[in-house]
Simulated scan of single mutants.
Amino acid sequence: MPAHAAGQAAAHAVDVPSLGAAGFMQAAFGLVLVLALVFGCAWLAKRFGLQRPLAGGPVKVIGGASVGQRERVVVVSVAGDWLVLGVAPGQVRTLHTIAADQVPPDLPAPAPGAAAASAMQFAQRLQQKLRKDR
């Protein structure tokens, strides 16, 4: 009986191909193909405007201040109305609302690229400081 069982086991055994150069090249080609497909889809989405716009939406941040280690008060403009929001981890609450006709005209609205300009100034100052330290 054991010889018969060994014969059946040998008949059911499946040859497992070794992972040689051909298998490695096939896997690498598949990986490159998938990455090219992902980048191609991202390029198409950017080309045809399928991504979400980053700025210029109906909500604009007017200003903000930290009032604690993880709490902030933020003023945002929504359709001309100003909302004073309390922002804490896990929650946002409306503290006050200022109607569009009550918004003081002497307070300038932020420039569209104010945050980007501030970041550029910081980057330039940091580079200058790093050059001086060398």
Rank of each mutant, 00 (worst) to 15 (best):
V84T: 03
K60N: 07
Q128C: 08
L54R: 15
A65I: 02
P112F: 10
L126E: 10
D15W: 06
A123C: 01
R72N: 03
Q26A: 13
F48L: 10
P2V: 07
S77W: 00
V59K: 08
D101H: 07
F24I: 13
I62A: 04
A6L: 15
D15V: 15
K132N: 09
M120G: 03
V103S: 04
S18W: 06
W82L: 13
P89G: 09
V74N: 01
Q102Y: 10
A123T: 01
Q51M: 15
Q124H: 06
F24T: 10
G80Q: 06
A5R: 14
R131D: 15
V16C: 11
V59S: 09
G23N: 01
G68S: 04
A119M: 08
G90I: 01
I62E: 02
L37Q: 12
S18L: 13
L95S: 00
A116P: 11
D15N: 11
A88M: 03
A65M: 03
G80Y: 07
A9D: 14
V16T: 12
A55C: 06
A36C: 07
W43Q: 11
D133Y: 08
S18G: 15
A100K: 13
A100E: 04
A9L: 13
G90M: 04
A111C: 00
F122E: 11
C41G: 06
V67S: 12
M1P: 06
A114C: 02
R93W: 02
Q124W: 06
L126I: 08
L95M: 03
S118A: 12
L83D: 02
L85P: 03
P105V: 07
G63K: 01
A114I: 02
V103T: 03
D15Y: 09
R93N: 12
P105T: 09
R47T: 15
V14C: 08
K60W: 01
G57M: 06
R134D: 12
P104T: 03
L33N: 13
K60F: 02
G30C: 02
M1K: 05
Q128I: 14
Q121H: 07
G64D: 11
R93I: 11
A10R: 05
P105A: 14
V61Q: 03
W82Q: 15
K132W: 07
R134E: 12
V32E: 04
M25A: 14
V84G: 00
A55D: 06
A9M: 10
S118D: 12
G7E: 10
A109L: 14
S66C: 10
V103Q: 02
L126S: 12
L126R: 14
G20I: 01
L33Y: 10
G68W: 00
A9T: 11
R70K: 05
Q91C: 04
V76D: 00
G57R: 08
P17F: 04
G7F: 00
S66F: 04
L44W: 15
P89N: 11
Q121T: 14
P89W: 02
Q51S: 13
G68N: 01
Q26F: 09
V61R: 03
G7A: 15
